[in-house]
Design a binder for these strands. Structure first.
Lengths: 135, 135
DNA sequence: CTGGGTGCAAAGTATTTGCATGAAC
DNA sequence: GTTCATGCAAATACTTTGCACCCAG
């Protein structure tokens, strides 16, 4: 879906500023606020910091983007995607996505706790293939 | 291990302030900075905010405590524990811990990506038993 | 047109730091 | 006694807000 439609579906006007923010997230995959700021300052120098804050918050609320929180790291933003796991390379810092079925674990938790599992967020600390082979 | 020993093992002096912070985390299981602040203001009103910040940061660095980051929530602190999963109740907000073996998933990731998995952090959004039965 | 969005400057929070004093070892 | 930690106040960093102007629909 185009970013223009994406915004309109969520009752947000398709301004150049918003499109620029979405493009940036798409390019980066996962971007910290700092990343977004830095990249935008080149692509669209007049886009103000308050606009970035305001829009990221709005898009979080409307579930267009999500926040990726990793211990000992800054928070990242990403375009909302289907269920996936984050693989965080402890060497180069890169974040990869990985599709995975976690129903087994969910069932196990439900059986042992009596809770109802709705959803999950999984992070794995890894050394990525590239860093492994670089050694 | 007593908190006094815990601190000394990490070359930190066992001050009443530090012990109070550790006790607070132990009581709460998972506490936000705000929780810590609020509880401490009763138990030890002269303990200053900068001391809380300084010590939590130091203890994070020395791996005495860890940070629990959950999307759409404030960050929590907890005493460092063995590998466990966090179950976050979407209804009452409570966080439970759950012990689980995740080797299967790790192996699956390694097989499919070529990465080396070091560690993992898993969160599950749940409706806890208590909230389920309260309906 | 008109309502919502933007930029700017200012306000509001959160976090860190420098330094003199005080406590742990 | 020394060294390290604390409290306070000040500095810095981060985030939000109010308002006049502007643009997408």
């Amino acid at each position: 879906m185009s970013h223009i439609k994406l915004l309109k579906n969520h009752t947000l006007k398709a301004t150049p500023q918003r499109l620029c923010i979405l493009d940036t997230l798409q390019e980066c995959g996962h971007a910290t606020l700092e990343d977004v700021q830095k990249i935008i300052s080149k692509k669209f120098p007049t886009l103000s910091l308050s606009t970035i804050y305001r829009n990221l918050n709005e898009m979080l609320q409307k579930d267009i983007v999500s926040e990726v929180k990793i211990a000992n790291k800054k928070d990242y933003f990403e375009l909302k995607k289907d269920k996936h796991v984050h693989l965080v390379c402890q060497n180069c810092g890169k974040i990869e996505d990985f599709e995975i079925a976690t129903d087994d674990i969910s069932k196990q938790i439900e059986a042992q706790t009596g809770d109802k599992v709705l959803n999950d967020t999984l992070y794995f600390d890894v050394i990525c293939k590239d860093c492994l082979s670089a050694k």
